[in-house]
Structure formats: structure tokens, C-alpha cells
Simulated scan of single mutants.
Amino acid sequence: MKKLFVLVLCTAFFFSGCTRDEWDTRNPYLPEIAINYTINTALPTYNKLQYPGNAVYVAGFGLNGFFVINTGTGIRAFEATCANHAISGCSKLILNGIEANCSCTDALVYNLYLGLATTSAQYPLKEYRVSQSGTMINVYN
């Protein structure tokens, strides 16, 4: 009887590890795509990432490229595709200072410090992992 109780307890613990809410928040619009790109902030193209409050757009990686921002407390990187639309011509985001603008009909605007839309939207921007060593920034997933 004691073994049965332990088995039931372990099974309940195992299945409670992944809740339905975790699966429901997965963005259906943006597929997983491999990315691994290194940025050298000593180069003129990326030099402004050495200073807080600056963002750059990197084309050719991810779905529509990605944005990198120096928040002052760290470096963050986000996919340059609107997280609340199916991939289309209008879902490519346009960098505007520390914001990214969607050109689809609802004209969502995302804050790159947080990756959140400035108005109500279901999904935040897709964030990539970042590691930094000196002037080198690695963006990956």
C-alpha cells in the first residue's frame, strides 16, 4: 500500500510539472527557428549598443531579422516579426528608437525594453537569449 501511495504521488508530481496554461501561452504565429549570431560592438554598425537606450536592427537572421537593445541593465534581443499576426508582409516590424512598429491594420507598437505592446495584445515579442563578453554579444536560442 505504501508503494502505491508513493507511485500515485510521483505520478501527480510528474504531470503537474507542465500545466495547460504553459502550453496555452505558446505563440501560434511564430515558429521556432534556430539563430546564433555574434555582434561585435566595436564595429561602427553596432557601436551604439555600447550605450544604454540604443537599439539596432540585424537583418537576415530569425524570421524577419531581430532587434538588439542595450537597456542599461543588460542586452536584450527580440524577433523583428509582430507576435500577434500570422507571418505576412505587414508583420515585419520597423525599428523606431526604442520601439518597434507593426504595419498591419491594428498598428501595434512594442517597447523594446520589455518586449510588450504599448496597447493590449495577447503575445509579447519573441525574445532570444543573449550572452555578452566584453564587446561581443551572442544572440541565440
Rank of each mutant, 00 (worst) to 15 (best):
M1P: 04
K2G: 10
K3M: 10
L4W: 13
L4Q: 11
L9W: 12
C10M: 15
A12T: 13
A12Y: 05
F13G: 08
F14L: 14
F15P: 07
F15H: 05
S16R: 07
R20W: 13
R20N: 14
D21L: 05
D24P: 01
T25C: 00
T25N: 05
R26S: 04
R26D: 08
N27M: 06
P28R: 00
Y29F: 11
L30H: 00
P31S: 06
P31L: 02
E32H: 02
E32T: 08
E32D: 11
I33Q: 14
I33V: 11
A34E: 13
I35W: 01
N36F: 05
T38A: 08
I39P: 01
T41C: 04
L43E: 13
P44I: 04
P44V: 02
P44H: 07
N47F: 07
K48I: 14
P52Q: 03
P52M: 07
N54Q: 04
N54K: 11
V56R: 02
V56P: 02
A59V: 15
F61C: 04
F67D: 02
I69Q: 02
N70F: 05
N70K: 08
T71G: 01
G72R: 06
G72Q: 09
I75M: 11
I75D: 03
I75T: 00
R76C: 06
R76D: 01
F78K: 11
F78S: 10
F78N: 07
F78Y: 15
T81C: 05
A83I: 09
H85Q: 11
A86Y: 10
A86K: 13
S88W: 00
G89S: 02
C90H: 02
C90G: 00
C90E: 00
K92Y: 01
I94N: 10
N96Q: 15
G97F: 07
I98R: 04
E99V: 04
E99D: 15
E99T: 14
A100C: 02
S103T: 14
T105I: 13
D106F: 05
D106M: 10
A107P: 00
L108G: 00
L112M: 05
L112K: 03
L112Q: 09
L112D: 03
Y113V: 06
G115A: 00
L116E: 15
A117N: 12
T119K: 13
S120F: 09
Q122Y: 12
Q122T: 13
P124W: 08
L125K: 01
E127H: 09
R129N: 14
R129S: 15
V130C: 01
Q132S: 07
G134M: 01
T135I: 15
I137M: 09
N138C: 04
N138F: 02
V139P: 06
Y140G: 04
